[in-house]
Simulated scan of single mutants.
Amino acid sequence: MDALMLEGWTPILLIGIAIAIIIFFVSRKISRKALILISIVLSLVCVGIVIYSLVVVRGWEGIGLLFVTFSGFVGIWIGTISGFIFKGK
């Protein structure tokens, strides 16, 4: 039963994990200031998508878009923080 409940959430979780991994590898190649700038810009894009999903889309489709955006937002900042921690400079 639990596996069936997780099945619908798998794409949303994979989006967050993929974004965290991408940001982590990007953080290894760029400076800290550039990483923070990229993370803030992507976070603002996420906030814009949340506003769009609440105002324009509405309904269940808007809630689905909200969950995907929130997963991406969490992935952005997990990747950013882990990049800071493991970069070591």
Rank of each mutant, 00 (worst) to 15 (best):
G16S: 04
I22Q: 02
A18H: 11
G8M: 06
F70P: 02
I51C: 08
V55N: 04
L66K: 10
R28Q: 14
R58N: 12
R28D: 00
L42Q: 06
V55L: 13
I40R: 05
I38G: 06
V47C: 11
L6N: 05
S53E: 08
V47F: 13
T80K: 08
S82W: 09
S27Q: 08
F67I: 05
L35R: 08
Y52T: 01
V56H: 08
L54V: 11
S82M: 06
F86N: 11
W77T: 00
A3V: 12
T10E: 10
F25S: 04
I19F: 10
S71H: 07
T80H: 05
M1W: 14
G59P: 10
K87H: 15
F86H: 14
L65S: 01
L42P: 08
K89V: 06
I40S: 05
L35V: 07
S31P: 11
I23N: 02
L14V: 04
A18T: 15
I22W: 06
V26Q: 09
G79H: 09
G48C: 07
D2Y: 11
T69Q: 12
S39D: 00
W77S: 00
F73H: 03
P11V: 00
I81R: 10
V56R: 03
V56K: 11
A34W: 07
K33S: 13
V47S: 05
E7H: 13
A34D: 10
M1G: 15
Y52M: 11
F70R: 00
A18K: 14
G59L: 04
G59N: 05
K33T: 12
I22R: 09
A18Y: 11
L13A: 11
G88C: 11
L4F: 08
L42A: 11
G88M: 12
L42I: 03
D2P: 14
V55C: 05
F73S: 03
V41Y: 12
